[in-house]
Amino acid sequence: MIPFVRHTGRVAALPRVNVDTDQIIPKQFLKRIERTGFGQFLFFDWRLRADGTLHPGFELNQPAAAGASVLLACANFGCGSSREHAPWALAEYGFRALIAPSFADIFFNNCCQNGLLPVVLAADLVAELFRRAQAASNGYLLTVDLEAQQVSDAAGFAASFAIDPYRRELLLRGLDQIGATLLEEARIAAFESRRRSSWAGDSG
């Protein structure tokens, strides 16, 4: 996993609530057995027209959003299916950080597993970012600093965000969660032997 320390990038603004993972990556693309190759299908039904050309009305296709790496989104982003193909597609398309008032739980976890930083900011702050993004017709840049836990722009916006220290550490160092858990082998083994001797319901 690529570490995430600090990132400055162009913002794409997607002012829609409850964006579900079926929209982020439709089911017809879930048949691949690799973790790669999903970026081209991101927001497929919204981003592309039936003939395969870009849909001019879709937010990510606006010139100001070209090459964007920070996605500004609305409440409950990533709801629905647990498909990790959604963060895979977002990351491969070029996003490094997502900012929204709230994310669906499973999606939030999936992003962290892939070095894609989900930042939760209060709704009024996100609304202010949407305003600033809209006003900047030539593209709007944001800096997302995980080390300092802060989102800022060049025009004086600065807001801090919370993230639990465990996830922050893994993201900062680009660490694999499995490796971290395997270090706890002694505890896991102890739990298993305790469980074997005490739990009636365990027939597995």
Partner: peptide, 8 residues
């Protein structure tokens, strides 16, 4: 859970 967690 997601696929990374499935692996975990």
């Amino acid at each position: 859970i997601g696929t990374s967690e499935v692996e975990h």
